[in-house]
Design a protein around this nucleic acid. Structure first.
Lengths: 215, 215
DNA sequence: GGATGTGAATGCATTCACAGCA
DNA sequence: TGCTGTGAATGCATTCACATCC
């Protein structure tokens, strides 16, 4: 099975399956069927089976999927069976929240370095990390073997930071700035615009009103 | 055109179009063609036209779309032509970053109240807001006419908070907790799992080669 | 010429439905 | 019986291609 035949949305669901499996593993549940997993997450059982089957045959007819095995398989598929070193550019409000976010390490991502353009912040420590000037990015990428970065800078400077990261051969960028980044095709960008999330909710909620007034 | 025929993905792109239009409006650009807009955001021109055409005829053949008009139209469609009052539950690291995030207000969302379970935080101010006990949620929803909320609490308590919000008749929830919420069908949930975003990048990057990870 | 708006065609993703196995 | 894995069928979303208009 070639990876580029796999629906994007299926990969997203894989992460959601993994998260639920990790939760029920803590509760000592040993196996789970596609029907149970689907019901817990509001997907159809067929959807769950199809998604998992893209990557191999992990299930046991009449039984379901063994939780522990499935967690291991999904981590391997998603590439989080190893720890990734990640760097962060931007130590503003959001950046500092990201620096202390525990969820990253739990999932296999270690924040290895932090950068900011503001000289007043340089050298100041947060946890074990010291904020460095952005000019130090290239060096850090090389010495720490970094391939992934997060951008949490104002939208005006985000493209510039992205260019620096690309030049330093970072191949994956998680972008929190409210702007669409332009990068070469071999670089992957995942964008999270916080306000846009509320905007999408706003649309859905207005739907309700409109649907109510137009039968 | 009925709203429930509109692809989910098209609504998401609408937000991205709006963001770009707002950016070029500042730069005094008056009109833009579907081709230009698409190129800037890596979509096809046909995609742009189709998305906009779901909602009406806004373009001018031979000219393109007038930026100012289109911004007004998109805001109206997305429901952000007026300001929404939003409440936040959870004043941890992420919650405090959300409290000070300027992007919300720029997009038409005002943080109107903040809640946390930790009694040590109650009464402490952040900006103009005082952190309140979660027991005050229902009252705040009513007096402030709130229909939208953000959850930034640990995953163990997120479902409980969601239940309180649903009971208080909040209809839109932006969930930052790393767990799938179960809510009634008339409630909309938009979820952002920060670590999951990196996990998705990790998958894409593993398609190439396995390097840059530490065992 | 240079655009839009839109049916028709294509391409993807999801669901169905059932053979096969424990 | 209960469940998986999977071709076939269906349903959605995107792209094509062209009539239409400034």
């Amino acid at each position: 099975m070639r990876h580029d035949e796999i629906p994007n949305s299926a990969v997203h669901r894989l992460s959601i399956y993994l998260r639920h499996l990790e939760a029920i593993h803590v509760l000592q549940q040993r196996t789970i069927s596609s029907k149970q997993l689907g019901q817990a997450l509001s997907y159809s059982d067929a959807q769950v089976r199809k998604d998992l089957a893209y990557f191999g045959q992990f299930g046991h007819p009449g039984v379901g999927y063994r939780v522990e095995d499935m967690i291991r398989e999904l981590r391997s598929i998603l590439g989080t069976d190893k720890t990734w070193n990640v760097l962060l550019v931007g130590a503003g409000n959001l950046g500092r929240a990201l620096m202390t976010y525990r969820g990253f390490l739990r999932k296999g991502f270690r924040l290895a370095a932090v950068f900011d353009a503001d000289t007043a912040k340089h050298g100041r420590g947060f946890g074990e990390l010291e904020i460095q000037p952005v000019s130090a990015i290239a060096h850090a990428v090389e010495t720490l073997q970094i391939r992934m970065a997060m951008i949490a800078v104002p939208p005006e400077s985000a493209q510039q930071v992205a260019d620096m990261l690309v030049a330093a051969k970072v191949r994956g960028i998680l972008n929190f700035a409210a702007v669409s980044l332009v990068v070469p095709p071999e670089t992957y960008v995942q964008s999270v615009d916080l306000a846009m999330q509320l905007e999408q909710l706003s649309f859905r909620m207005n739907l309700g009103q409109i649907a109510g007034t137009t039968p």
